[in-house]
Design a binder for these strands. Structure first.
Length: 895
DNA sequence: ATCTATGGCAAGCCGA
DNA sequence: TCGGCTTGCCAT
């Protein structure tokens, strides 16, 4: 943990009192400045005030020098961050089953310099459904509990108990791996992202009466008979989600660094080269470009937009000083890859230039850079998050690069460079760097500050500091709010190995080799063109199962004999009938709120657009959490990993979909396809749909609804492969090769044409004309290829992402890896995550990176056969033959 | 340090 | 030559 001290901060604050101007400041740095006591008090009053109007709790951390947790609060009117230091005497601790008198016999504990005291407390042990007595070992500082390489109490207690008492493996410790500030949040039931005020030095939650009324309305409206135990959870969630989010004043920062080798970015840990440019773009519209004067650099076109202030600095030190001033002035600082590069570089560069530690406003630990004043959000880390990428942004971008994300989300791109930043004129450099900072800011401001609000919503749900939420994954978010609930209810937080040893592993066998248990059912499709298809699905199937069937680590294979008859189908697991699992209550209530309140409200036209926008943010945040809520049970990295719970969820899902298909057939409905939670019904009557839906509610306790109607659906014989035309003519294409991202643009364009033709078909009669048109299209595509008239060779490139370093492919050498090696031979740097663009060529090794290939090398026949397999997926459902279309006779096919 | 899950398809590699 | 296996991309 970084040692952070308020005193250091005072020094900064004092030097920051003067306004930051747009001109280069005169540098007048005073080393080891003496700070007198009197002004200190005044400054403390300003940054850690005894009274503060309602402000948003955005962060918590530990101040090593003071030995207490401090909070960062964002006051929305002054748009400043204020600090609050713990005054409750809260201290870090762990729990152990070893009685205090035995702990006192362990020398390294009894004489531990940081030991504070022991307490005897009672906790509820959910794994065994009993109260237990544990010793709370309280320490003076968090590192004494854990986090040091060795000598932490969490290691000493089991080790020394074993050696002193000769009882190996008997001493247990709990709750010793929770970050101290997080522990503090739990114990004080703090709600990050929510409003607090400070009154005479005391921190108090602030309640907004109008919003509170709304919350009561929601809870009353959604409460159902028989789900009374959900009410408190619903109310807590609704409060977190209903309170509005503030405008967050922020600045985006991007820097450019000189590099003697054009293709290499300087190592931030060494920081051997000067910072030559920096851009600061803020949420109020202020734009600054800071340039370092260097000999021999051309001016270039310095005619930047009039709202941009361009500032030249003769000394790099001055330039960095100005950046640091900005970092000390904004409550939120946004970067793209600032953890790894920009802030990291500035930190080390400042060190190299001889800045005093207290003049550097950046803290570094492991992989992150934080700020002494504000909140640093690294958008790269946020957009890299898989669940954000998939569920919040619908996989619009594939690689988390600024260029690709900006293109996908903003429709804007980075400025393309033909030379390295070091070789640019001032004008070019300024434009390039400014553009990056503008894109970075815009990624947080587009769509009415969607990303900032999403972060705020996730901060509240996960009950984590905003910096952590933006950097950690969904499994940590989910873990955290479940932990929070444990503490609140005095439930012992179990160790992962305890869950495994009590609950055991899975009992079913997966269909796929290497998987841990059996998953979902996919119904074999009936191939062909089907008109009037209703797609019904269970809304949030897995979260619903977790809710309705009371799943959680404490309820699956619970300790009660009397629950053993409550069996999960196709397994030997049973589920508790006596207690409600925390996961079931938390995930279940979130699901209900999303389905019954936030999704409808996000579309409610009677609400203001700001209100709708916020509800849309909330429903997206919930979607991200809910979609992962089942998966985490089956993920080893999840701290409440419980394979039988994951397995039970999937097993119940199979049972539900199977029963529903049976019921549909009994009702005389033809089921032509289904996957996991959906059913494709051919030409059902409204009555049939209603009966099926009511049956599901009655018999299964699950909500089954029509998701959409297809005018018609084209099913092939393959699972997860179909095409459906909606009533408005838009087309859903699922799983077909023609839509996959790695295939050549040349083929994709023709596939899109066919999709367009199909979207215009309304009746079976129109189908014949459409078929002829499809044939024409395919023939054209084929002829273009045969005649080598594809135009740009780039359009023939397959684009495949390297899953790992090229040399790590030890089993096989796929084509994109072969191409990667060719690139590397040309001196191009290749690493995991790179997209390799290659074409198929006639000569060995039959592939070539598109950059190195010429048109005459292209293996046309390979492309034709690729064309065939791609279009066959649609053609066989339409009763067409690729070879007949392209005019091959039967005889020719054999030659 | 970081990381939800399983099912399914197409293509290509590679050993029997 | 065949079939199992690896890989990447996608569905849910």
């Amino acid at each position: 943990m970084q040692q952070k001290s308020l005193d250091e901060f005072y020094r900064m604050f004092k030097t920051e009192r003067h306004e930051v101007t747009d001109k280069a400041p005169e540098v007048n740095r005073i080393e080891n400045e003496e700070v007198s006591k009197e002004p200190l008090k005044q400054i403390e009053e300003e940054i850690a005030p005894r009274n503060l109007p309602p402000s948003y709790l955005v962060s918590a951390d530990y101040d090593g020098a003071r030995g207490v947790v401090y909070l960062k609060l964002y006051e929305p009117n002054s748009q400043r961050i204020y600090f609050w230091y713990d005054n409750t005497g809260h201290k870090p601790y762990l729990l152990t089953n070893i009685p205090a008198e035995d702990l006192k016999k362990l020398d390294r504990i009894a004489n531990h310099p940081s030991l504070d005291h022991f307490e005897v407390i009672e906790k509820y042990d959910a794994l065994h459904d009993r109260m237990i007595t544990v010793t709370k070992v309280v320490a003076k500082d968090p590192l004494a509990i854990g986090g040091k390489p060795k000598g932490s109490m969490r290691e000493i207690i089991p080790d020394d108990y074993a050696s002193t008492f000769g009882k190996i493996g008997e001493a247990k410790v709990w709750e010793a791996a929770i970050k101290y500030y997080q522990c503090y949040i739990f114990d004080r039931e703090l709600q990050p992202g929510m409003l607090y005020k400070i009154e005479d030095g005391e921190l108090r939650p602030y309640r907004h009466e109008e919003t509170e009324k709304n919350i009561r309305k929601i809870v009353e409206g959604l409460a159902k008979e028989g789900e009374k135990d959900f009410l408190p959870y619903m109310e807590d969630w609704a409060r977190l989600l209903e309170y509005p989010a503030p405008k967050m004043r922020r600045v985006a920062l991007d820097i450019e660094v000189y590099s003697p080798i054009a293709t290499r970015v300087p190592d931030p840990e060494e920081a051997s080269q000067p910072v030559i440019c920096a851009s600061l773009v803020d949420s109020e519209g202020k734009k600054r470009v800071l340039l370092l004067r260097r000999p021999g650099v051309e001016e270039g076109d310095m005619n930047l937009p009039s709202d941009v202030s361009v500032e030249f600095y003769a000394s790099e030190r001055d330039l960095i000083q100005v950046i640091f001033s900005a970092l000390d002035n904004y409550p939120f600082v946004i970067t793209f890859n600032g953890d790894d590069f920009d802030l990291n570089y500035l930190y080390h560069r400042a060190k190299n230039l001889g800045f005093a530690r207290s003049d550097v406003p950046i803290y570094r630990d492991q992989n992150t850079c934080s700020l002494r004043y504000g909140i640093h959000i690294d958008l790269y880390r946020f957009f890299l998050n898989r669940s954000i990428q998939v569920y919040a942004f619908g996989q619009k971008y594939r690689n988390a690069t600024l260029d690709e994300i900006a293109r996908a989300i903003l429709g804007k791109s980075k400025i393309e460079l033909t030379k390295s930043p070091s070789e640019l004129s001032y004008g070019e450099l300024a434009r390039y760097c400014l553009n990056d900072a503008e894109l970075t800011l815009e990624l947080t401001s587009y769509n009415d500050d969607l990303v900032m609000k999403l972060l705020m919503a996730l901060t509240r749900i996960s009950r984590m500091p905003m910096e952590d939420v933006s950097r950690q994954g969904v499994s940590k978010w989910i873990r955290n709010f479940i932990y929070y609930e444990h503490r609140r209810r005095n439930i012992l937080i179990p160790n992962s190995e305890d869950i495994i040893s009590v609950k055991g592993m899975t009992v079913t066998r997966a269909r796929i080799k290497g998987k841990k248990y059996m998953g979902a059912i996919v119904v074999k499709p009936i191939p062909g063109v089907h008109f009037n298809v209703a797609v019904m699905d269970f809304q949030s199937l897995y979260p619903s199962i977790i809710k309705v069937y009371n799943l959680g680590y404490q309820t699956v294979r619970c300790p009660h004999e009397e629950c053993r008859d409550n069996i999960v189908p196709e397994t030997t697991h049973w589920i508790c009938k006596k207690h409600r699992a925390l996961e079931s209550a938390l995930i279940g209530s979130l699901r209900d709120l999303r389905v019954k309140w936030y999704k409808p409200k996000a579309k409610d036209k009677t609400l203001s657009s700001e209100q709708r926008n916020w509800y849309n943010v909330i429903q997206s945040a919930l979607k991200v959490i809910l979609n992962a809520s089942y998966g985490v049970f089956g993920a080893e990295i999840f701290d409440l990993y419980c394979p039988p719970a994951a397995e039970a969820t999937a097993a119940i899902g199979r049972s539900i979909i199977t029963q529903t298909i049976d019921k549909a057939r009994k009702l005389g409905i033809e089921v032509i396809y289904g996957d996991t939670d959906s059913l494709f019904l051919k030409n059902p009557t409204p009555e049939q749909i209603k009966m099926l839906s009511e049956w599901a509610e009655r018999a299964l306790g699950m909500e089954l609804e029509v998701d959409k109607y297809y005018r018609y659906a084209v099913l092939s014989s393959r699972k997860k492969n179909y095409l459906g035309v909606l009533e408005d003519g838009s087309v859903d294409v699922k799983g077909l090769t023609g839509k996959k991202r790695h295939i050549p643009l040349f083929i994709k364009r023709y596939f899109d044409k066919i999709e367009d033709i199909l979207s215009h078909v309304k009746t079976p009669a129109e189908f014949e004309a459409a078929k002829r048109e499809i044939e024409r299209t395919i023939r054209e595509c084929y002829m273009k290829l045969k005649n080598r008239e594809w135009g740009d060779i780039n359009d023939l490139a397959f684009e495949v992402v390297l899953g790992k370093m090229p040399e790590a492919y030890d089993k096989t050498t796929p084509q994109h890896v072969k191409a990667a090696f060719l690139l590397r031979a040309k001196g191009i740097e290749i690493k995991a995550g790179d997209t390799i663009r290659f074409v198929k060529v006639v000569k060995e090794p039959f592939v070539k990176p598109v950059q190195l290939a010429t048109p005459k090398e292209i293996d046309v026949d390979k492309y034709v056969s690729y064309l065939r397999s791609t279009f066959d997926q649609i053609l066989d459902a339409l009763n067409l033959e690729f070879d007949e279309i392209i005019g091959l006779t039967r005889l020719e096919q054999f030659m």
